[in-house]
């Protein structure tokens, strides 16, 4: 593989990381901590939304993020032809 392919692959990876980590930050530090008061004004069933994100929601999003990243990276691996045999 050429150095150019490697670099392009790495930049695509970094872009994907930036998106994933922004979501990671927003659901936990954003919704669960910094904006918790505001979100607690919204109630869904017996849950205040901010409290729900802090104790349940953020964890579900973390889980989806990891599987999404893994799936998307496998695609990128093939696209740039840097996958394992």
């Amino acid at each position: 593989m050429s150095d150019d392919t490697k670099q392009a692959y790495w930049r695509a990876n970094l872009r994907l990381l930036a998106w994933c980590l922004s979501i990671w930050f927003v659901v936990s530090y954003g919704f669960g901590i910094l904006l918790v008061e505001q979100l607690n004004q919204i109630k869904i069933g017996g849950f205040m939304l901010g409290f729900w994100f802090a104790q349940q929601g953020s964890i579900y999003v973390f889980l989806l993020l990891i599987f999404f990243y893994s799936w998307r990276m496998n695609q990128l691996d093939r696209q740039y032809n840097v996958h394992e045999d």
Binding site: C20, W24, S28, A54, Q55, I59, F62, L65, Y69, S70
Partner: peptide, 18 residues
């Protein structure tokens, strides 16, 4: 107590991605 819930799971995102 949410710090433990988010802290001890969110680390896996860093681990898996970084």
């Amino acid at each position: 107590g949410s710090v433990y819930l988010m802290g001890w799971t969110g680390g896996y995102v860093l681990l898996a991605l970084l």
